[in-house]
Amino acid sequence: MSILVEQGGLLTTVQDRGRRGWQQYGVPVAGAMDQQAMMLANLLVDNDEGEAVLEATVLGPALRFQTANVFAVTGGDLSPQLNGQVIPMYRAVAAGAGDKLTFGGLKTGFRAYIAFAGGLDVPLVMNSRSTHLRGKFGGYEGRRLMPGDEIGFAAPRPTLPNLPARRCDPEEIPGAELWLRVIRGPQDKAFTPKGLDTFFSSEYTITNECDRTGAKLEGSGIEHVKDGNIISDGIAFGSVQVPSNGQPIIMLADRLPTGGYTKIATVISVDIPRLAQSKPGTKIRFREVSVQQAQDLYVQAMGRRRELAQRIRGAAVAADVRRFLVRLEGREYQVSVERCE
């Protein structure tokens, strides 16, 4: 009950929500770069939203199904194909034993997420199946997937109730320009008024020095009061560090738990998926929002996802229920029968 990796793609790893609760011990979080795409992929195949998926960057893998199972692809469009036929994104698809999932090339975005019904059978390491590449632990042997790797399915499902209803609209994929909303600080006092104005009024470009740890930006230098060094403190997903050279770095999923550079701002949670789908060369500008605004936007996003989950699951259940009028001893009864696998 598994998939065989025939080609690993440029960078394909096992990721879930991340290794949370261990930063105090110096353990990085890791996890999916685009958490929204990961959660939607799992929702489409009837998994828990935080179940482990495959994250593919730029060039997707070639996977051979050894066992029939349902899967879904979300996030960046890397041109998924099943047995050479183009398949839609953001839709549950049934694959049979021997079928081959491949990717033709990058169309939009930067990272795709592949979820499999029942989840992937890889070990839990500190309550997570996520791969941390620099630490060489978690996921599949702590590394990217390579030809010949075989990953088991935990509980494969050859079909799901009302498969055609398991679909949703694609998420917004950024183009060549991206506005990111940020909360100022925590070290905003380490920058001059001119430096703060530069940060919020200038355009920055994602450089080729961009990976799962962080995205280095290039643009107008941001002026410090002294320099960019501080006593190391905690780093959040989306923290914008500014070293003494004045060039910002946005810290991402594989960031270390602490760092010693001043942080001018933090990208809000709902904008991180768009950042995760942005490739080198993308132009970025920053817009300040309050903590309350960021929280309101997060609550709204969670509400939309709950509504989507109810719609998908409700449609699947409704389509698999049969209703009958039964007459028994002169009385009529409305009976509903739901098919169970």
Results as ranks from 00 to 15, higher is better:
187 Q>V: 00
297 L>I: 07
200 F>R: 02
210 C>N: 15
79 S>P: 07
226 K>D: 11
208 N>S: 13
201 S>R: 14
74 T>F: 07
162 N>L: 09
94 A>L: 02
105 G>M: 08
24 Q>A: 15
304 R>Q: 15
64 R>K: 15
189 K>P: 05
139 G>T: 05
337 V>G: 04
200 F>V: 04
268 I>E: 05
336 S>L: 05
64 R>H: 08
96 G>F: 02
258 T>S: 13
77 D>K: 05
277 Q>W: 03
271 D>C: 10
146 M>Q: 13
183 I>F: 07
47 N>Y: 01
32 A>K: 05
142 G>V: 02
47 N>A: 07
210 C>E: 00
178 L>I: 01
13 T>V: 11
293 Q>C: 04
111 R>G: 02
21 G>A: 12
312 I>T: 01
88 P>K: 04
2 S>C: 05
229 N>I: 12
260 G>V: 01
336 S>C: 08
127 N>C: 09
214 G>P: 06
47 N>Q: 09
38 M>Q: 13
259 G>F: 08
152 G>V: 03
49 E>C: 06
150 E>A: 01
212 R>V: 03
269 S>E: 14
327 R>Y: 11
240 V>H: 08
19 R>M: 04
160 L>Y: 03
67 T>C: 14
328 L>C: 12
228 G>K: 02
31 G>L: 10
193 P>T: 00
102 T>N: 03
71 F>W: 06
131 T>Q: 00
102 T>K: 01
128 S>F: 07
23 Q>F: 02
80 P>N: 06
52 A>F: 05
53 V>C: 10
322 R>N: 11
302 M>A: 14
232 S>E: 10
127 N>Y: 13
312 I>D: 02
149 D>G: 07
104 G>W: 05
210 C>R: 09
269 S>Y: 06
256 L>P: 03
265 A>M: 08
286 F>L: 00
206 I>H: 11
251 M>N: 12
296 D>V: 10
89 M>T: 09
109 G>I: 09
291 V>A: 15
283 K>D: 00
10 L>Y: 13
217 L>V: 01
130 S>N: 03
329 E>M: 08
222 I>F: 10
34 D>C: 11
103 F>P: 02
138 G>W: 07
27 V>F: 04
305 R>Q: 15
167 R>N: 05
69 N>R: 01
96 G>S: 15
306 R>L: 14
58 V>A: 14
221 G>S: 15
180 L>V: 01
268 I>S: 12
117 A>V: 04
151 I>V: 13
269 S>Q: 14
230 I>N: 10
316 A>Q: 11
115 A>L: 03
75 G>N: 06
204 Y>M: 10
73 V>N: 00
97 A>I: 01
